[in-house]
Design a protein around this nucleic acid. Sequence first.
DNA 1: TTTCCCAATTGATCTAGATCAATTATTGGG
DNA 2: CCCAATAATTGATCTAGATCAATTGGGAAA
Lengths: 251, 251
Amino acid sequence: MTITKENTKEIAGRSIFRSPRVSCVTCSLSELCLPRGLKKENLDKLDYIIKNSPPIAKGNHLYLPGDDFKSLFAIRTGSVKVYVLDKNGEEQIIGFYFPGEVIGFDAINKEKYICYAIALETLSYCKLPFEKMSLICAEIPEFQDQMFRLLSDEISTEHDLILTLSKRTADEKLAIFIMSLSNRFAKLGYSSTVFNLPMSRQEIGNYLGLAVETVSRVFTKFKRTELLDVDKKILSIKDKDALHALCGYNK
Amino acid sequence: MTITKENTKEIAGRSIFRSPRVSCVTCSLSELCLPRGLKKENLDKLDYIIKNSPPIAKGNHLYLPGDDFKSLFAIRTGSVKVYVLDKNGEEQIIGFYFPGEVIGFDAINKEKYICYAIALETLSYCKLPFEKMSLICAEIPEFQDQMFRLLSDEISTEHDLILTLSKRTADEKLAIFIMSLSNRFAKLGYSSTVFNLPMSRQEIGNYLGLAVETVSRVFTKFKRTELLDVDKKILSIKDKDALHALCGYNK
DNA sequence: TTTCCCAATTGATCTAGATCAATTATTGGG
DNA sequence: CCCAATAATTGATCTAGATCAATTGGGAAA
């Protein structure tokens, strides 16, 4: 099946789903997201251009490859999977993204999105029009700095993934993956030890370059050796030190 | 051995090595490098801040992890290997860079370099002081655009590497590697079919997540099947189509 | 030129993780 | 609530590529 914007259903704008107009000034993510370190008056400028979009349901796409690049997207709640399709139509996952994280940077150069971005669960997000952002960058040095930092951060994250993929065993890959989630959730103020896995085992395997069966077996092994518990989607870390040790320097 | 700036010898500034002051305006790489698409008058501003450093010899480091981040580096001639050391002190190669390419982006966020960058052969480069670059970005919109494009490009390149590392066979990895070099050399105006490999087999393997022996065996196989010839460091592509086919969508 | 030292190649064997296969949850649609 | 489709687990086997081992080749120093 070819995926198009048309066959990914948008949630109806029913009042129950209609989020209040959220501003960067009051957003709980402002210390993680784009606004980090910006002064109040600059935040207002940002608020002026950022479009606080209505939530979309699980399974909907934020963008598709080939769409004209207009905006970056900041995640407010929920999670996103970014992937491409290879020559055989096989999904190849590039990353999972959570609240406070910004996606779409890889489209800047090509002026088209080159990946698929799909909501793994009900998703609310802010749309960041890139042209306008560029203008504000030129105006507010702190904001330009912050943009460069975000881009740089994305590059660092991918360096880490590169090292994980090319030099680690299945056990290490999964430990690194879990610790990465744990750390990101902790930053968001959630528990670092008990959390929900919004993606399937299949998707974890795909992302880490492992077969599903291997992911499942490593989870079973980690349960047996009391590193963690995982029941369906709920994961709880029982021996953080041991997991951390498996990660080596990463994470 | 711990690597420090001190034990990487700088080439003496002997007249034979002293390069003429090269400006972006006259540089043959200006259509690939930072200046791409900039108007003459803006190029002059760029020239004013860019430091055209004296060449360094093979084996010298451009920067070390932990050094304060001051500058990006644009390669003028020669090639650079960027790597980190893992917990066991093992080298982990992040990338190889050639003329017209810019390195150091991953340091912006941390304000420290996080990788090693070493010259694989005699290297000439331009030093791009980041603070000053930021100022020019705010002044010249085209220049800001170009900076964003370069960062975005780096992210795309790493996406490609991620896909290569996690989903490809040894044959495919090597084909992708060779085609990537071929394409980059072609852009520089060099032959796309005959070129020099500035890195060792060991380094190719490290970069692609393969053992040296595997790299050697795949080269032998490619020679046997007439895809290419490789004698020591000189590689010549004999069947570009077949190599391209092995790459799938990449490159 | 000779010697030393790595880099590269080639062969033999081993193993982590893939693939194939079967079974048992789970989930979502009607 | 039921059923069909899908996700996850577990077991058995296979294989690409790692590892171990030995040999060859080439370049730099004297």
